[in-house]
Design a binder for these strands. Structure first.
Lengths: 324, 324
DNA sequence: CTGAAAGCGCTTACAG
DNA sequence: CTGAAAGCGCTTACAG
């Protein structure tokens, strides 16, 4: 039922080779013949079966995207950046999650072996780095999107400036006269936590550092604890916006005015950062740009370019709103 | 370099047919032979090339997912529901956006014609319904995920209970003694807006209905206007959580206490609903469940089942927090 | 139970 | 400039 290259060839009175040529190379075909073939193609609405093309050419014009979760607040931004870039290049994007546990991981590895895609984009998962390294070793082009600031020797990746971001937050607080910041971080095992901490401390020494998860609850609890302990602080640097939102809530509950009594700076610039009370000043992570850059890098690799050993770094940016 | 079915056949001393049989049907193969073949497969780490299998079988074991945007707040939930279901069935998921304008739309239609996937899941886009209908007419199995409450004759789709959701919001307000609700809606052209309005009015007549976009600004402006006009209201029913967030902000700015002076109910149950001040009571849209149901429906269709004409409806649920 | 052969729908040297 | 043929890596009747 669906029209094939043979139908086109027959209708145009040429061979399949010729149809294929006008479809692909374009050159080395008589102008008049090519025009006729193109007419037939348009008339019949012929589109080559991507599976057949892939088999014949040995590539699928598809990239894989592998992510631990699709529901993280900034994931949509990354995906949009990747999708835009990949689609503009005429590639498809096969999406996978590791969220389903070992079973989904197995399904994914099988797809890799099945060469369902030409290259792979990975949001660094905490646990599957080994599997990813192995895929790369077997010849699958891989680019990581690193949100955790871990060194990835031998794996091309795009990262952001966690250190500079921390420093920018500190500079902002310093400029408004703050001297005793409370810093609330995510899990210390993450490289990004250490980098943000370092950058911050290089500008403004922290009065107190509390760590926890990247959650609102961590922010609320940390502020409550600091308050209960009688720690004096005039600012909060939260390692992400959820923590910042929790901190804001605890501060308001305790009657502190933001930013007058305590200034607050977050990290990420999630959409919700506009809607906190007051609107959150935060260090923007360029997630969409990182997605775009990673996709571009991978596509250039598929095009034959050597993938760089150095991480591609997209800078953070301080977004000033009302909380600091 | 990558191992093929011929390599396996040679190593096991059987024909490709036999290898294929143990891989697929499993039956009609001598137990000992099958065991030997399986050993070789494991030893060589053989995985059939999905492109070749697809070509030979005429199907790709992949579904397409088409969405207007990846950055909508609830999109991650839908995608996660789809991904979980599809992966569990051993299918891949090819993701496309129409966000890139006519160009990305063209790229997508081409993929459809290229039979890059066996079936299609679509988040109803405002403008591309025609294209989708056409794809269906040409034999592509399609299931819509309808967030806008439009009737879709002839297109299988999953929807939610906008009407019942509106009624539940009204019932909640009524139960706490509210009698003069301000209703702030999204664009009236959307079916969901009318349904939510209907459901609400069937329980509690609105004092005033203002429409706008599904944005925080609409919520803020609407409340400010109502206040400026001196309209008396003791409750707000916002047609989504962003509008509700804007309403909360404007109420606070005007010194109204929530819920004491004015109770507020939203719609969606975005993650941010937990973080508003006070935490938002809202009507939950079951986006992940809708994604799951749509995927299941499509997969059963690919399995040969007839796709239902009736929409598959997943109910909303009132989530009670502090704002009402 | 098993193999040889044809076929899926393309691309790409190889001849001419 | 163009066509016949082989090949991409599988599956699946068809014989036996």
């Amino acid at each position: 039922m669906p029209v094939t290259i043979s139908d086109v060839a027959r209708a145009a009175g040429v061979s399949k080779s010729t149809v294929s040529r006008v479809l692909n190379t374009g050159a080395e075909v008589d102008v008049a013949t090519a025009a006729r073939v193109r007419e037939v193609i348009a008339g019949l609405g012929y589109v080559p079966r991507s599976g057949a093309v892939g088999l014949a050419r040995g590539s699928s014009r598809t990239i894989g995207m592998f992510t631990p979760s699709l529901t993280w607040p900034w994931m949509g931004e990354v995906l949009q950046g990747v999708a835009d870039t990949v689609e503009a290049a005429g590639y498809g994007m096969l999406l996978h999650t590791s969220g389903g546990g070992p079973r989904s991981m197995a399904h994914f590895t099988a797809q890799v072996s099945a060469r369902a895609f030409d290259g792979l984009l990975v949001i660094v998962p905490e646990d599957s780095l080994g599997a990813v390294t192995e895929m790369r070793r077997r010849g699958m082009p891989v680019v990581l999107i690193d949100d955790h600031g871990h060194p990835r020797p031998g794996l091309p990746h795009v990262a952001t400036t966690n250190r500079a971001g921390g420093a920018a937050a500190a500079a902002r607080l310093l400029a408004s006269g703050r001297r005793r910041p409370l810093v609330i971080t995510g899990p210390p095992r993450f490289g990004c936590v250490r980098e943000r901490l370092d950058g911050f401390a290089s500008v403004l020494p922290a009065s107190l550092v509390l760590d926890g998860e990247f959650t609102e609850e961590t922010g609320r609890r940390a502020v409550e604890r600091a308050l209960a302990q009688g720690v004096a602080f005039d600012a909060v640097f939260a390692h992400n916006d959820l923590i910042a939102a929790g901190a804001l809530r605890a501060l308001r509950a305790s009657g502190r005015a933001v930013p007058d009594d305590v200034a607050v700076v977050g990290f990420d610039d999630l959409p919700m950062a506009r809607h906190t009370e007051p609107a959150l000043t935060t260090v923007r992570q360029p997630m969409r740009e990182m997605g775009r850059a990673a996709a571009r890098l991978l596509l250039s690799g598929l095009g034959g370019a050597a993938l760089p050993d150095e991480p591609l770094v997209i800078p953070t940016e301080l977004v000033v709103r009302d909380s600091a």
